[in-house]
Design a protein around this nucleic acid. Structure first.
Length: 274
DNA sequence: AAAGGCACCAACCGCACGTGC
DNA sequence: TGCACGTGCGGTTGGTGCCTT
């Protein structure tokens, strides 16, 4: 016997929500809180499927949602998190306050994919599109983004170098973001030894460790990496997955050995290998 | 001005996972 | 241990508005 349907489809509305339905849903959740989505429609007097109510609330009606365009910092953060997590939109959304997984997924498919293609990067693998043939040279991708909320304060430049694959693993030179005060940094895209806090390490796993971009902090609070280690340290503690909000079934494999750690002024990030 | 194409995004659908019995 | 249920996630679809011809 199969599972029962989540609702009686013949008695439910579909399609766009009306203002009245929105009001009913908002009022009910204000009065009773979230949860029990299956019974919510009936209790709230809505001819909707419980799943539909949940989606409408989470993606559109929640009061803490941030509306409006994505900032450059959010763009870069999404790209970095996607390179680390793949299509784990809920995990990525957990790192972007006020944004929903659905919103990020749509934004990825409509904007960022194209953006990465224009940069010559494969949006799925985050490797250069011609990586299979470019084995002798190092590709450098530099992005400069300005904080639209603080137009006059600072720019954040991120440089990622892709080096030719070694025998069994991809080695990538990591640089933490440089805080470039004031003027544009154009013209120094390939110069990796400019001023700012720069840490370079090579590690044998395909991780993008740029974590400070786009975090909801003011420029003056940009996180400086004060310690970066690649080790087999087995210290227990919150792994990166947990820092990202991973719970339960999700990708966290904390049982593995720690591959690297980054200490910032505000957080300790640990990376575990499966 | 009209038609077709395209981009965007809200919403739907099916599946997987966690939990309680 | 297995089943049913509730919930969450990711992929996909369809409606709408804008742009181009």
């Amino acid at each position: 016997m199969g599972r029962s349907p989540c609702c009686e489809k013949e008695h439910t509305n579909k399609g766009a929500w009306t203002q009245e339905e929105d009001d009913r849903l908002i009022n009910y959740i204000k009065a009773h809180g979230e949860g029990c989505w299956r019974s919510l429609p009936k209790a709230a007097g809505l001819l909707r499927c419980g799943k539909s109510c949940r989606l409408r609330w989470i993606n559109y009606l929640r009061p803490d949602l941030k509306r409006g365009n994505f900032t450059d910092e959010e763009d870069e953060l999404i790209i970095n998190l996607h390179s680390l997590l793949g299509n784990k939109w809920s995990l990525i959304a957990a790192r972007l306050p006020g944004r929903t997984d659905n919103e990020i997924k749509n934004y990825w498919n409509t904007h960022i994919k194209r953006k990465l293609h224009n940069r010559g990067i494969d949006p799925q693998t985050h490797k250069p599109l011609n990586s299979t043939t470019a084995t002798a040279s190092t590709a450098t991708i530099t992005t400069t983004s300005s904080n639209s909320n603080n137009k006059s304060s600072s720019n954040t430049k991120t440089t990622t170098k892709f080096q030719p694959e070694s025998q069994n693993s991809l080695t990538r030179v990591i640089q933490v973001p440089e805080i470039v005060n004031g003027t544009s940094t154009s013209g120094e895209e390939s110069n990796s030894s400019t001023s700012g806090i720069t840490t370079e390490e090579v590690y044998p796993v395909e991780l993008n460790l740029d974590l400070s971009l786009g975090l909801p902090v003011q420029p003056a609070q940009q996180q400086e990496v004060v310690n970066f280690q690649v080790s087999g340290n087995q210290n227990q503690g919150d792994c990166f997955c947990h820092n990202l909000g991973s719970q339960g079934k999700q990708i966290c494999r904390c049982g593995g050995s720690m591959a690297a750690s980054i200490t910032t002024k505000y957080n300790l990030y640990r990376f575990y290998m499966p």
